[in-house]
Design a protein around this nucleic acid. Sequence first.
DNA 1: TATTGTTATACTCTATAACTATA
DNA 2: TATAGTTATAGAGTATAACAATA
Lengths: 152, 152
Amino acid sequence: MPADDHATLAADTWRLMFDLLVRSRPERDAVLARLGLTANEYKALHSLDDQDGRTMKELAAEWQCDASTATWTVDRLQRLDLAERRVHPADRRARLVVLTPRGAAMRAELVRAMYAPPADLLRLDEAQLRALHEALTPLRHDRRVDSGTVTA
Amino acid sequence: MPADDHATLAADTWRLMFDLLVRSRPERDAVLARLGLTANEYKALHSLDDQDGRTMKELAAEWQCDASTATWTVDRLQRLDLAERRVHPADRRARLVVLTPRGAAMRAELVRAMYAPPADLLRLDEAQLRALHEALTPLRHDRRVDSGTVTA
DNA sequence: TATTGTTATACTCTATAACTATA
DNA sequence: TATAGTTATAGAGTATAACAATA
């Protein structure tokens, strides 16, 4: 295939990656359906932990939603017994939202399943996979640019 | 980095691709914001053309929504002067939804911009890009598996 | 009678504004 | 007075069910 200049080559390269992602989306949708969660509940669980907790203000910023929407979302997680509110030890106005044991287990399973490689990728043989892994390495990004965004 | 077996290597490879996609999502969000469209309007425009048109039934199936929701969506595209309904020549119950000239132009610009390679990818040099392109080639998929899904 | 599409209606998710309780 | 969070309320987007037109 002719891909003469840098821009054209980048466009076709991206198209291959993007198509794989789009094609594999039904696999991720199936994970959410199996666990009975919405994409937003996934995003919400993703930014919680069972240790320190996050304030409502932090969560609203991370989810890029209004404070009242964060209240609504946490209410729902709480009703599902996935998260709970605790009083902030240093500021009695604030809340610390933490995962329940059930929420922590759900989050672990979600992250595992949502990050699972799609069927198309698993079909590559060892050599193909190694070549791809190596070619992708320059794109590795250690720092978390926007931890709130967990969907594509 | 140790990536000993096939599954681990696939997992890390996928993580690199997926992270790039997640990281570049703000670029796609910015395209929609600039054009004043929602993600759903993008999806809707994506499955239309200015030639043959699609029936409401086909659109509801492709968008995986209720028929009444498809009605609502097409109403909005119509109010935005992006699409219009025509009577189906062979079945007077049915409608054919086609893009207006404005809609066709908008769709072309949208697809161009939404498929544009992200900044991180463009930063690769010629050799890196060629290696990545080659490594992705086994994943090329010509047929459209699920034309309704256009987001990752 | 069956099918295509719309309308009436309700439910979910989102935001804005007013409010409560702390700081 | 300012800030963290909730509540009251309204709008956007979704679905279900009843309906109209046509096959």
